[in-house]
Design a protein around this nucleic acid. Structure first.
Length: 483
RNA sequence: GCGGAAGUAGCUCAAUUGGUAGAGCGAUAGCCUUCCAAGCUAUAGGUUGCGAGUUCGAGACUCGUCUUCCGCUCCA
């Protein structure tokens, strides 16, 4: 496993120095695991977001996009399983410092007991869990002398609850319990599921079809680290693809292939990726895998592809008492229409922030350009041109003799089509290096010859080569290169 | 949450045994008719993370606190 901590640190520093990513609230010492995107980072992120959106909703003929709210009715998270599955009581052993999920600990112990006795223990545990009686759970563990596998002691901390979801107060949620708590969504997917019927009916969508969404999600990670890889507030790009039950295997394979095509279209070689199949499946899935990228900190998940069965729609149907069915008029092999059914779902879910980090990791290079007489180096971000924050640097060779005026004309011509950066300060070499550092793929230099024959120098970021082209050709050349 | 390390200018780091904080790079303004960083001049920028204590005097010593980093723990 590649593990280059220095490179990772260098990328983090570079991101801060060149306006890509800053620690959140830095003047107040920062907020753990929250980051802000700066002037270049937000352009990069937006370009990735737009690229994904277009690829999903414009280049596919059966996928539409939505933008659901972050706040959702609290019952949503009961239906999705998040309330029950992700607020597990935990307990720590004080000697080994090992942390356990209380249910796992007790279940493990129960397996060592005679069957009847074990079943009895599980039953009393579940009763306590349902009642959220943490003191009772601790007592149960201690009275049964359940030991830590590592330290072998019964020296436990109190049972504590770790909530995955952030909650907040909401003005006036109706609720019999009288509490006004709502959650910040921990995934965007549920916004798609609760709108399944709205979109299907209003868009006259026919199965198979997909609904895409990009948006923020929030998770209380127990430990959040590794820069923007694991943040408490992050952005997901998700697509739920609704299919006929029984066809999930082939669609799962289809989307695995399709999503990998997207990744390769970022110009990242296949060798930098791998699929990782989940052995232990989440509560909603019948097949799942990750697309992992070889970060400087090793292979890590960027995207997940899950076969979610009809778990979500079925549960929403149950909790909301609204039929989540689709009427399929197509005739099946038995000569009859498929009729009403709850669709199955294939999900593709990619972390936008992780994708940005992937692009940064792939793009970042410290290059040694030294010669025997003169040491030299540069840091260059080799972003795909279509995703680079700035597409074109416009640089008059000197700031006199009318060169800035010509450069400004070019600026005016190009800026409505793509993002440009104008600079007339410092030596040309310095300016090139600054453009390299933020990954600008092209620079145009206007010199005295421009005034004579209307040609300019174009300088390529990756090769550092330069050639003369007509000033008039610049806009089209760059525009073509960033498509 | 536990253990370890560290917090001095935007960045990288200095500051003898405690004696009122300095450099390089960077930034800004200008000079040099300048096509691949480190030429010249000038300028700006720090209650040394924060709070207390010891001391005539604390960046340095003590305590507390916050934050970050590295491990461990958790992770749909």
């Amino acid at each position: 496993m590649a593990n280059d901590s220095n490179k990772f640190q260098a990328i983090i520093s570079h991101c801060k120095e060149y306006g890509f990513i800053f620690p959140s609230s830095e003047i107040y010492d920062g907020l753990s695991a929250v980051y802000d995107y700066g002037q270049n980072g937000s352009e990069l992120k937006k370009n990735v977001r737009d690229y994904w959106w277009k690829w999903m909703t414009q280049l596919q003929d059966n996928i539409v996009g939505i933008d659901a709210a972050i706040f959702m009715h609290p019952t949503t998270w009961k239906a999705s399983g998040h309330v029950d599955n992700f607020s597990d009581p935990m307990i720590d052993n004080k000697d080994s410092k090992k942390r356990y999920r209380v249910d796992h600990l007790i279940e493990g112990f129960a397996e060592t007991l005679p069957e009847a006795e074990g079943a009895e223990l599980i039953a009393s545990m579940e009763k306590l869990l349902a009642a959220e009686d943490f003191a009772g759970l601790k007592q149960l563990i201690e009275s049964r002398k359940i030991k830590c596998a590592i330290s072998g002691t019964v020296n436990w901390t109190d049972v504590r609850q770790f909530n995955l979801m952030f909650s907040t107060e909401f003005g006036s949620v109706s609720g019999e319990e009288g509490d006004n708590m709502v959650y910040l969504r921990p995934e965007t997917a549920q916004g798609i599921f609760v709108n399944f019927l709205n979109v299907q009916k209003s868009g006259r969508m026919k199965i198979p079809f997909g609904i895409a969404q990009i948006g923020k999600a929030f998770r209380n990670e127990i430990v959040a680290r590794q820069f923007i890889f694991r943040m408490r507030e992050f952005e997901q790009m998700e697509m739920q693809f609704f299919i006929r039950p029984g066809t999930q295997k082939e669609w799962y394979e289809f989307w695995k292939t399709e999503r990998m095509k997207w990744h390769l279209s970022l110009g990242i070689p296949e060798s930098r990726y791998r699929f990782h199949d989940h052995v232990k499946l989440a509560h909603y899935a019948d097949a799942a895998c990750d697309i992992e990228y070889d970060f400087p900190i090793g292979f890590k998940e960027v995207e997940g592809i899950h076969s979610r069965t009809d778990f979500d729609l079925k549960n929403h149907q149950e909790f909301s008492r609204k039929k989540m069915q689709y009427f399929d008029p197509e005739v099946g092999p038995d000569g009859k229409p498929y009729g009403n059914y709850i669709p199955y779902v294939i999900e593709t879910s990619i972390g936008l922030d992780r994708t940005v980090m992937m692009l940064l990791s792939e793009a970042y290079e410290e290059q040694d350009l030294g010669t025997p007489d003169k040491p030299d180096s540069r840091v260059v971000l080799r972003f795909p041109a279509k995703l680079a924050p700035v597409k074109l640097g416009i640089l008059p060779l000197t700031k006199k003799d009318g060169l800035p005026e010509i450069a400004q004309e070019l600026m005016a011509e190009c800026r409505s089509v793509f993002k440009c950066f104008y600079e007339e300060k410092d030596t040309i070499g310095k300016r090139y290096r600054r453009m390299d550092a933020i990954g600008t793929p092209f620079c145009i230099t206007i010199d005295h010859q421009t005034k004579e024959d209307g040609t300019v120098t174009i300088r390529y970021r990756d090769t550092m080569e330069q050639e003369r082209i007509p000033l008039k050709a610049v806009k089209d050349l760059v525009d073509k290169a960033i498509q």
